[in-house]
Design a protein around this nucleic acid. Structure first.
Lengths: 388, 388
DNA sequence: CTGAAAGCGCTAACAT
DNA sequence: ATGTTAGCGCTTTCAG
């Protein structure tokens, strides 16, 4: 329903190109060109969203083409140094900030990496992210961090968000009850490299970064044995997770090596929550045949155990030796200080990110599904050392 | 340099519209239309970047227009239910994922919030982020998290990144040596709402979220006084930060109220790093007139103090009362357990994000620079309670 | 109810 | 060295 501004006619109107960004019309009847007055432009101006300068603004101000501006800004090929200077100056004047979204869209490259972690509750994942971000930033990549909150559904939603944001690669540590991997396979199907760390997916053929859980556990338990503990229990993690498996195996093999019996009643599994660890601790310490030492799947679990033991009046390390895993900052200051298996946490993040960037560069077909295993290291403190 | 496929001619070629996404040419000489064979399309296909389905793909497959597809996907206005079903089905079939970047570009709305925090070293900022993300996710917003690493330069770079990504709002906790605020003002200039939390900017007229540092400190010190400590020292934070100020004032006023002298030598300032706190602790405990209690600006500082005291053989709480601030998870398990001022950490994040989303909705002109002050709460543990 | 076309801000191939 | 044009994937009038 365009009405000619001159003859007030409706039927003889055709479009006639664009004039300064506005639709121009032509009235065949009175043979005039016209554009419509823009009544609503002001509304936008009033909402408070101050216009952000674009390359077109710069181009107009300098009376050159936007390609030239783009080239000047990107320090492209041959451009007149004077033009370039003028552009840069004007850009500063107008407070110009390149629009990443537009840039990404046209280049089909978002410069963004996605990270999915289960939680932020202990120092562990935040520290990994620090390491990963450090490496990403150096390579000019941004990072979108998602927390799955140990919930499968959230994890699937996270994957969607990352996909929608066209991340170029993804770092993942799964929730403890992820059994279906379709949402991860989607990445692969679209050629988006994935690297798992810590909680890795066995079913997928991707690079992974782990710490040497088996050896760490083995060292830990052997250390307990050497300190004279004989009835050693284990608070393990969820059995789906490879880390739980590996640590359990390390535990078992250390016992075997030293000819100690593996007793099923001494092996418990928690879901990595505080409460579950607490329950495991209570169960173990209330056994008729009470263990004289416990190797725990991680420090938070060990700390729960220590609290339960304190409450029951069981002396650590005299009556109960305790070893944790991961060297949480707490373990150094708790009393008695907790013996634990140190893992290079920030390094996990750095290594995973490096691996990922590498794979992005190579393209998904150049993928080698390497598994990097970082070294663990036993830190002996008081919770497991009996004075002789 | 387009060469006619028929007459091999170069000069009489004009463009003649687009055919199936490809430039069509017309040779005036031999009067034929033609398109160029696409030699390089394959290269793209070989790089491994699998094509992601777009609305055009869906449209073509269904032989309808992309507008219709868009409408069907967005559950727009009136659309034929059958068409909609068909579109949704095809979308699922093709593994279609909307391109957020394109969507954001056209809507000039990125659906993304930026967060700048100094570090991830203690549980504090990660926990705040958890809270903030929780609220953002519910409102359908993504979050880009930046760590300034307590470095002004990095903070400025962070701001640029967020600006380039066209975030719709920003949550900030400043580095301890941010004195210039141009990079924050840029947000305001572009109508992007900013909310500060914890380490707020006094010079800017924005909403802020704080905890009641003054009262927390006051309660803490009064608690020490009531437990019979008389020579109470303070390890404070960097004096530029408002939190340091407020906590210091709470300390002073509690002393005043109870007619205790404020002694300058008992007031020290650290930069919130472990080492600086350690140094402060050593300085205080080596004074001729050694304090019998210390109120610390945060728990990590208090823990450093406790370590130094332990090393020097000073008994806590008998010879030295200690109170921290923030209820770090460590403070509950350290020995003796640390009395501390609890702050609702995750709530800071939630409140700040709610305030921000609110301001985004209202537009920057509807801004009210409210300052929300969340309640603090003294948790009495052993480090400050002398058995009578 | 559907289609055509313009345009978000930018880059890049092509044409001077 | 610079301008012109097409197009990245999408939404949104406008016009049937």
């Amino acid at each position: 329903m365009i009405r000619c501004v001159k003859c007030n006619q409706v039927h003889a109107i055709t479009r006639a190109g664009i004039l300064r960004g506005k639709q121009r019309y032509y009235c065949k009847d009175c043979k005039t060109y016209f554009t419509l007055p823009d009544a609503d432009k002001k509304v936008v101006a009033e909402t408070g969203k101050k216009h952000m300068a674009t390359i077109v603004d710069i181009a107009k101000a300098l009376n050159i083409s936007k390609s030239t501006v783009s080239r000047a800004l990107r320090e492209h090929s041959d451009i007149n140094p004077q033009t370039r200077e003028a552009v840069l100056k004007k850009a500063r004047q107008l407070d110009y900030q390149p629009n990443q979204l537009a840039q990404s869209l046209v280049k089909s490259k978002s410069n963004t990496i996605g990270i999915i972690v289960p939680e932020f509750l202990t120092y562990f994942f935040p520290t990994i992210i620090m390491g990963a971000q450090e490496v990403a930033a150096k390579a000019g990549y941004n990072v979108i961090i998602c927390q799955s909150q140990e919930t499968f559904k959230t994890e699937v939603a996270n994957a969607q968000v990352l996909l929608s944001n066209r991340v170029e690669g993804v770092l993942i540590s799964m929730t403890k009850d992820t059994k279906n991997f379709e949402h991860f396979r989607t990445f692969e199907r679209h050629g988006i490299p994935v690297v798992f760390f810590n909680r890795v997916c066995e079913e997928m053929n991707t690079p992974r970064v782990l710490v040497d859980d088996y050896n760490g556990a083995f060292m830990a338990v052997e250390h307990l044995i050497k300190n004279g503990y004989k009835n050693i229990a284990h608070i393990g993690g969820p059995s789906i997770l490879r880390i739980s498996h590996n640590r359990l195996n390390g535990y078992k093999d250390a016992l075997k090596k030293h000819k100690l019996k593996i007793k099923d009643e001494l092996i418990t599994h928690c879901d990595l929550s505080k409460d579950a660890a607490h329950a495991c601790a209570e169960k173990l310490l209330n056994l008729k045949n009470r263990p004289d030492a416990v190797f725990c799947v991680n420090d938070p679990a060990a700390i729960q155990l220590m609290l339960v033991a304190k409450n029951m009046g069981i002396k650590i390390p005299e009556k109960l030796g305790v070893v944790g895993f991961s060297n949480d900052p707490i373990s150094a200051v708790i009393d008695p200080a907790l013996t634990t298996v140190e893992q290079p946490v920030a390094d996990i993040g750095r290594t995973a990110m490096r691996l990922l960037l590498d794979n992005i560069k190579k393209g998904i077909d150049g993928f080698k599904p390497v598994t990097k295993s970082l070294k663990t290291n036993l830190i002996e403190r008081q919770s497991s050392v009996r004075k002789k």
